[in-house]
Nucleic acid binder design. Sequence first.
DNA 1: TAGATTGTTAATCGATTAACAATC
DNA 2: TAGATTGTTAATCGATTAACAATC
Lengths: 217, 217
Amino acid sequence: MAEKEISQAVIGRLPRYFRYLGELKEQGIERISSQDLSDLMKVTASQIRQDFNNFGGFGQQGYGYNVEYLYDEIGKILGLGREHTLIIIGAGHLGQALSGYNNFFNRGFIFKGAFDLNPELYGKKIRNIEIRPIEEMEQFVRDNKIEIAVLAIPKDQAVKMAERLVNCGIKAIWNFAHVDLDVPENVQVENVHLSDSLMKLSYGIDRYEKSQVKTRK
Amino acid sequence: MAEKEISQAVIGRLPRYFRYLGELKEQGIERISSQDLSDLMKVTASQIRQDFNNFGGFGQQGYGYNVEYLYDEIGKILGLGREHTLIIIGAGHLGQALSGYNNFFNRGFIFKGAFDLNPELYGKKIRNIEIRPIEEMEQFVRDNKIEIAVLAIPKDQAVKMAERLVNCGIKAIWNFAHVDLDVPENVQVENVHLSDSLMKLSYGIDRYEKSQVKTRK
DNA sequence: TAGATTGTTAATCGATTAACAATC
DNA sequence: TAGATTGTTAATCGATTAACAATC
């Protein structure tokens, strides 16, 4: 059975659908048509229907989509149907900020451990989890069947750390270091390159200003 | 003169080019061909040449591209040719983590002020900048000609805060709150929806596992 | 049943890749 | 000059949008 590969474009839109559906659900709205969702989200109704139909028919002709059902289904597609264990590597401000993101940890991402290279932090706690020396990381990952490592350390250490994580069997790395990690295909990586995003912002500022200058002429 | 609009796809790739060129420059490499850069970055040489040629001819036939020149030019395109003033709204861990990102502040993003809603934080300092009450924000933005606001507050306050920022003349919002902001087109917004990124990661884990189960049969 | 709205096929649009003439 | 490599045009591929038959 040739499993149709879902494009990155589609997958990238799923979390946003999920967010809007969650809000509709909270507002007690039971059903929604692709047209109404289109108005709300500012994407075409056609795209919405195409996207959902990658995963099977979630709607009903003449009725639309049941909000709660669709929400749950997209959640399952996104892997939110079960718990994921997680450790944080790097207990600085960023690591601490991430560990505190209730959004995540209400959604089945279970914060199990924190590691740092700085001995001064050992024994301190973030979110009631003790910060451990990085030397204990491998054993911890294996003992606790950790799936995800949040990599919140400087880039010069990140490549080596990613290698260690891969070697002890991590399944996924959420990478905040500003390097591209080279990992085998059985390990998932999501990069959050914050400075890339800031550069796009400054590009936007400049481009807008230039367009204004031109218009004023 | 019909200014050709550069596609988001191209702009999205510029920061990555910029990063690789910066590294090449640090290594003292003077020139590089699109083919060599292609091997390094795992994108096609054709795409590299097309991307650069959106902005004019940066290369030379038979020679390739001068690393330092190309680096500088892409930097200018990204708006890094001048300084950008910036304030942080929300002095929690995330705000503090961002304020400490040397990467940014070496690149012309000048951290001018920090604001919070929690009175307990007033007067405390992050990165040698005093945390101020949010009521002073509008005046501060005007007085200091602030361009960018980093929005690191919970989503239920973010929409209202974005409105206030727009009203006092901010040029850009770097949004870490988990909502889509609706702002006029003269204000730039870059969203960093961290949980979207985490969901894509869990999607990847699940999809990989399912593919393995199938293969094993 | 009639109206609404999906699921899906076909048409369009845009982005990526390939090819090669221009030129350093 | 010959070789290398860009800049750019043309071909291909994939993603988005439009249209409409199926069906609730």
